[in-house]
Simulated assay, not measured.
Amino acid sequence: MKYNNILTEENGGIRTITINRPNKLNALNRETIEELHEAFKAAQEDKDTKIIIVTGSGEKAFVAGADISEFADYDVSEGTKLAASGQNILFDYVENLSTPVIAAVNGFALGGGLELAMACHFRVASDNAKLGLPEVSLGVIPGYGGTQRLPQLVGKGRAMEMIMTAGMIDANQALSYGLVNHVTIQEELLPLCEKIASKILRNSTVAISGAIKAINANYKDGVNGFDIEIKEFGKCFGTADFEEGTTAFLQKRKADFPGE
């Protein structure tokens, strides 16, 4: 599929999705959100894709927020629909993918950009990255999951401060908060993400999918994460990956998982 605002590349089971609106600092407009949904969906449905990395083009920005010009004149109903639609087709969708998603945060990750990074399964940042949710400075609140995911990642107090001040934190502060897993220089950002991805590639995709579902369950209201873990654990025993993994362990060899 041809995209106007994103680029995709596949290499050895790793699908890299690059948001490519450098003249807008990769800001998210409706078309880009829809294209990202299609790109993530295509990666999820491709059996050859084992890991997804999402990043921004250039060296300045991962995603420097939403495209404010698109919704500046919205009313209450339109604003509500904007948040509901975006969460449904992109942010919640990414969080619940069974294929691991790594955010390679290469610069500004603000507003919807930070919300996209937080929807990914974990984040790696370049040392020039700046992260924040500045929405209250525009008279609005984060609407793509920011008020929910940020406290989960950094704690309630830090999330309250970041959102209320509309300020940015740098990469090292984000690392100390637990908002990102690693910080590296710009030139090593994608290589580091690929190195981590290569470690994930050694393992069972079926088991990883179950682990993602179980971990996410802990953050859903009305869902007992322990019950989901038990269910997903049990399901593993009926997979070819479990048979191969345990057999390889007993035979003292490296497992060759079929992904089934």
Score class of each variant (00 low, 15 high):
179 L>A: 12
129 A>M: 10
166 A>I: 02
183 V>L: 05
121 H>W: 12
179 L>Q: 04
176 S>H: 08
153 L>W: 01
120 C>E: 04
155 G>H: 09
109 A>D: 09
175 L>Y: 08
109 A>S: 13
154 V>A: 12
141 I>L: 15
122 F>V: 04
89 I>Y: 14
102 I>K: 03
117 A>I: 06
92 D>R: 03
174 A>N: 03
94 V>H: 01
131 L>Q: 01
88 N>V: 04
149 R>L: 15
130 K>L: 14
99 T>D: 11
152 Q>R: 13
145 G>Y: 09
94 V>R: 04
91 F>L: 12
162 M>F: 01
181 N>T: 10
172 N>D: 11
119 A>R: 04
139 G>R: 13
104 A>R: 01
130 K>F: 09
125 A>Y: 09
129 A>C: 05
105 V>G: 00
177 Y>L: 12
146 G>A: 12
130 K>S: 11
125 A>S: 13
123 R>L: 15
183 V>I: 08
152 Q>H: 08
101 V>P: 12
179 L>N: 04
88 N>R: 15
136 V>N: 15
96 N>F: 11
176 S>P: 03
143 G>N: 13
167 G>C: 00
117 A>W: 04
143 G>A: 10
145 G>Q: 03
146 G>K: 09
121 H>R: 11
131 L>H: 02
127 D>F: 03
132 G>K: 01
175 L>H: 02
119 A>N: 06
105 V>I: 15
161 E>W: 04
104 A>F: 07
177 Y>K: 04
138 L>D: 13
92 D>W: 02
169 I>A: 01
94 V>T: 09
89 I>T: 11
98 S>T: 13
99 T>V: 15
101 V>N: 05
184 T>K: 02
164 M>V: 01
121 H>L: 10
188 E>T: 07
186 Q>P: 04
123 R>E: 14
153 L>E: 09
122 F>Y: 15
165 T>W: 02
